[in-house]
């Protein structure tokens, strides 16, 4: 132990001196990628605060919050926002409720046609989505689900299934079986083992899947529009109507910036979570 540590300590400075050489190609790629990703975001952000911005000026001639007050004073924006949040919460919660036990079953149990079933979760993403949605919309029309909250919940649920199955399956498969057996040995029944050992052990990865499906649902547009219109209008659907009705760039920009907030929060959460778990992994957990 101590021998290994000292030899590591002496080996380290050499290794870091070797890797200190600047990697130009990597840097260039990072800068290029940064331009492609960041520049459009900056442009949109600037538009949200611009009142007059004419070609060829690099920056807006007039700055202001006029479009913010105009957007935020509209009641339909607030209804859409709260609807979107409610929808995403309900869909994510339902999805977790359905998918996590299923994912555990896929990871740990053996049953007939397991692989076929597992692949079928991919199937909904293997076809052009719009065609699938139209077909479902036809069915929903008969069921009276069109333009209802639960209709949109159902359609958005389909979209989250794959992520909420595939990622947690991998997470559960990584849980040491002996840990689960040790819990059985200590007197816990199968459900208790799932709740007290498997789930907490897989938690960081599962949390990431939950966040991804929350954000994904929040921005989901086609399903929400096709099934929800005209009564159920989520934020992205509202944005489309704005853009379709009048080409005022600022409305779209303001809404875009507003829509960034949940994904930004989610991203920060994930970063912290993944950061801490890999920290723990470094200690051999």
């Amino acid at each position: 132990m101590t021998i290994a540590e000292t030899s590591l300590a002496t080996a380290n400075p050499v290794a870091s001196r070797k890797t200190r050489r600047p990697d130009w190609i990597g840097g260039l790629l990072a800068v290029l990628l940064g331009i492609v990703v960041v520049v459009p975001l900056i442009v949109v952000a600037i538009w949200a605060f611009a009142e007059v911005w004419r070609y060829p000026s690099l920056l807006p001639q007039e700055w202001g919050l006029r479009f913010w007050t105009a957007t935020l004073s509209r009641p339909d924006v607030w209804t859409a926002m709260s609807l979107s949040i409610r929808l995403s919460l309900v869909v994510t919660a339902l999805s977790a409720l359905i998918c996590l036990p299923a994912a555990y079953a896929f990871a740990r149990m053996d049953f007939p046609a397991k692989n076929v079933l597992f692949l079928s979760f991919l199937a909904s993403h293997a076809f052009p989505k719009f065609g699938l949605l139209v077909a479902i919309a036809g069915i929903f029309l008969n069921l009276g689900l069109i333009s209802t909250f639960w209709g949109v919940v159902l359609i958005q649920l389909v979209g989250t299934l794959m992520m909420m199955i595939w990622i947690p399956v991998a997470a559960f498969q990584n849980v040491d079986r002996a840990m689960e057996e040790a819990a059985r040995d200590a007197g816990a029944g199968p459900i208790r083992v799932f709740w007290s050992v498997s789930l907490p052990q897989a938690a960081p990865t599962i949390f990431a899947a939950v966040l991804l499906s929350f954000v994904g649902t929040f921005y989901e547009t086609e399903g929400a529009w096709l099934i929800g219109a005209p009564e159920i209008r989520t934020m992205p659907v509202l944005m489309i109507t704005y853009i379709n009705n009048q080409i005022v760039v600022q409305y779209g920009a303001v809404l875009s910036v507003l829509l960034w907030i949940p994904s930004f929060v989610a991203l920060m959460f994930t970063r912290r979570l993944v950061g801490s778990s890999s920290f723990a992994k470094g200690f051999g957990v």
Binding site: D176, A178, M179, E181, A182, A183, D185, S196, V197, P200, Q201, A203, A280, V285
Partner: peptide, 13 residues
Amino acid sequence: TGMVFQSHALWSH
């Protein structure tokens, strides 16, 4: 019965 596993199988959380 009480079992001790090779991989210690302690619950790291």
